[in-house]
Structures are given as C-alpha cells and as structure tokens.
C-alpha cells in the first residue's frame, strides 16, 4: 500500500508545494510511490484523513487557520512543514512588528469582514512538527529526499550547516571577502546550493539560520561593511525574519538605534 499523503496550504504563496509539481522528471516515480489523496493544487479529488504524511505549507495568520492546523495534526501520522512560512513564519511575519489593525483598515474597503491575527507564526508554535524543510521556496531535491527517507522508514536528514560549505564546494569566490558584499551565507543553512553567490550576489538567507551561528560577530561583520541600523534590520528581517536568532539580533540592532 502506498502511503497516503496530503498537502495543506496556510498563509503562503504556493511556491513550495509547486516544487512537487515542478519535479517533472521525478513526477511519475513520485506518483508511483506516494498517493496524494489531498493536494488541491494538483488534483480536484480530495479524500478525508487520516493521512500518513502531511506536508504543510504556510504560516498561521488567522483564527480559522489556528484551529485548522490542530485538525491537520490530529489527522496526520507524520507532519513536515515545507518552506519559510510554515517553518519560520515567512515574510508575512513582518506584521509581528507592525500594527495589523491599521493595515486592515487601510488595505480593505470593508475591514469588518477580515478576521486576522496580529501575528504570523510558524506551524511549530501551534502543533508538534516532525520535520522542517526550510527554504523560500524549498529545494526540490530536499523535498524528494524527505519523501524517500519516509518511504524507507528512515529519519529524514537535511544538512544544517552554512551556505559557505556548499559555496566553496561549488568553487565560488567569496563575495564577502573579494567584494565586500553583505551576504547572509555564513549564518544561513544550506539547501539552495549557494545559488546567489554563484551569481555574484550576497545570500538573502532563504533557508533560515544554520544549526549554530555567531550572530554577535555576524552583526559586527555587517557593521564593518557599512550595513547598520535599518539596513541591517531589513536584511535580517527578511524571509525568515521571525526565527529566533535572526529576530533577536535584528531586535537588538533596532533597539540600539533608538
């Protein structure tokens, strides 16, 4: 029996679940191994739980979603978050530092119909998560490696070291050292294969913090490159801004400025 898999969407752009469909060369193999019984983006037929594997995309931003994720957890034997939104709160976690009520009134002609939370939070703040797949979007190879591990009844192992390791394996010249470019690579988890530095740009931190990093030193490095105050805060409060080490560092820099 093929495992029953489900793909759920919360507050997100759909880019991560699209990585399944973008895996064109692997799609037939994937369909041969896993039965996606609930995947609204891919098929109109949607079956009820329970599910063996749930892939959850998106963050929790509404009271309805806060209730729905609990039901998803109850129905799912194994739950993996996919992407920066589900794993860290996403870019929309910028609201966590803003006045959401004001946004609501300014943005919508009839704000009374909008029911929203004042924060965007990762899935792990609401339910137990078995595996976190980072990235904006997730890396297709990592996503399929997780599927394969689960099929083999093995614990998925995803690399958590810095982008620098893959950057050097790839033979890139360091943009920090050779160009003085601000780059989040040294404190960011690998997964993209050091994509941006390969095109001579600093890393944006799409895969969130590496497993261990020295944010105090990194903040000093940014400052030495002239990246201070709001500029430094904006770099850290990006795609994964709400995740703890980056949040705390950005908050400290912001507090310092005041």
């Amino acid at each position: 029996m093929k495992p029953r898999a489900a793909v759920f969407k919360f507050a997100s752009c759909d880019g991560c679940q699209l990585q399944f469909l973008n895996a064109e060369d692997e799609l037939l193999k994937l369909a041969g191994q896993v039965d996606f019984v609930y995947f609204p983006e891919a098929r109109s037929r949607a079956l009820e739980g329970p599910y063996d594997i749930a892939f959850v995309e998106g963050s929790i931003t509404t009271p309805d979603d806060a209730r729905r994720i609990i039901k998803v957890r109850e129905e799912s034997h194994y739950l993996a978050t996919i992407g920066a939104c589900a794993t860290a709160g996403g870019i929309q976690a910028l609201r966590n530092w803003a006045d959401v009520e004001q946004y609501r009134r300014v943005t919508y002609p009839s704000p009374e119909f909008i029911s929203t939370l004042s924060t965007s939070t990762p899935i792990s703040e609401h339910v137990r998560v078995d595996c976190e797949v980072w990235g904006c979007p997730v890396d297709q190879h990592q996503l399929l490696a997780v599927v394969r591990s689960l099929l083999s009844k093995a614990r998925p192992v995803l690399p958590a070291y810095s982008v620098c390791m893959d950057c050097k394996r790839r033979g890139n010249v360091c943009v920090v050292v050779a160009r003085g470019a601000p780059c989040l690579g040294p404190v960011t988890r690998t997964g993209c294969g050091a994509l941006c530095p390969a095109f001579n740009r600093g890393c944006y931190g799409c895969f969130g913090p590496a497993d261990d990093q020295n944010m105090e030193s990194f903040a000093r490095l940014l400052a030495s490159q002239g990246v201070t105050g709001d500029d430094a805060v904006r770099r850290l409060r990006g795609i994964n801004g709400y995740v703890r080490p980056w949040r705390e560092t950005a908050d400290a820099i912001a507090a310092d400025k005041k």
Partner: peptide, 14 residues
C-alpha cells in the same frame, strides 16, 4: 576566538 568565529567553515574549505 570563538567570540569572533562565525563557524561558517570557510577556513577549512579553502
């Protein structure tokens, strides 16, 4: 040294 080290692995890679 650890207060400065980013543990980024660059030294070992190069």
């Amino acid at each position: 040294a650890a207060s400065r080290c980013l543990s980024c692995t660059n030294c070992t890679m190069v």
